[in-house]
Amino acid sequence: MSTPENLSDEASDFRMATFRLARRLRAERAIDSMSDGQFAVLAALKMHGSHTLGELAERERVTAPSMNRTVNCLEEAGYLTRTPDAADRRKVNITLTPTGLDVVEETVRRRDAWLELALSELPPAERRLLADAAAVMRKVADR
């Protein structure tokens, strides 16, 4: 049975291992010079479709001016475009370009390949343990 002290140590160990794995996965990217925040914007557009600047800022939990700088940089690089909204000309929709989509897909491919290789080096029992842990991690993250 876990004591409060042990639970605190377990939580800390789990947090550190999760951050370390996430950092290692983030290192696998299609473009080394792209920041995590920039990639997150491209990934959000791929997953959820076009957004306004305000919607992107809210989704990524940053200020509108900060998001504007990120979007400007990504637009200049050709990864996304801004187009006036057909129904409301005051709004501008931000959409991935084919080049931006390629960056997201290549980054995801590299991250999956790295993780697949790492998992292939584990014994089957540890892979099953991680598969079970993934379900629990989703449950904790969805709280």
Rank of each mutant, 00 (worst) to 15 (best):
M1C: 14
T3F: 09
L7G: 14
D9N: 07
A11P: 05
D13C: 03
D13Y: 09
F14V: 10
M16L: 13
T18D: 07
F19K: 09
A22K: 09
R24L: 12
R24W: 00
R26Q: 12
A30T: 05
A30G: 08
I31W: 00
I31R: 14
M34E: 10
D36H: 12
F39L: 15
A43T: 07
A44P: 01
G49N: 12
G54I: 05
E55I: 11
L56F: 11
L56D: 01
L56P: 01
R59F: 15
R59A: 11
E60F: 13
R61I: 01
R61Y: 10
V62N: 04
T63V: 00
A64S: 13
A64I: 15
S66C: 00
T70Q: 02
V71S: 05
E76A: 14
G78P: 04
G78W: 00
T83H: 10
T83Y: 03
P84N: 12
D85S: 13
R89C: 00
R90Y: 09
K91V: 08
V92I: 12
V92D: 00
N93G: 00
I94N: 02
T95S: 14
L96H: 04
T97A: 05
T99V: 11
G100C: 05
G100H: 00
V103R: 06
V104W: 08
V104R: 05
E105V: 03
T107Y: 04
R109T: 07
R111V: 02
A113G: 06
W114K: 01
L115M: 13
E116A: 07
L117K: 05
A118G: 01
L122A: 03
L122E: 11
P124Y: 04
A125V: 08
E126D: 07
R127I: 13
A131F: 05
D132F: 02
D132L: 12
A133L: 14
A134Y: 08
A135M: 08
A135N: 06
A135V: 12
R138A: 12
R138C: 11
K139N: 03
D142F: 00
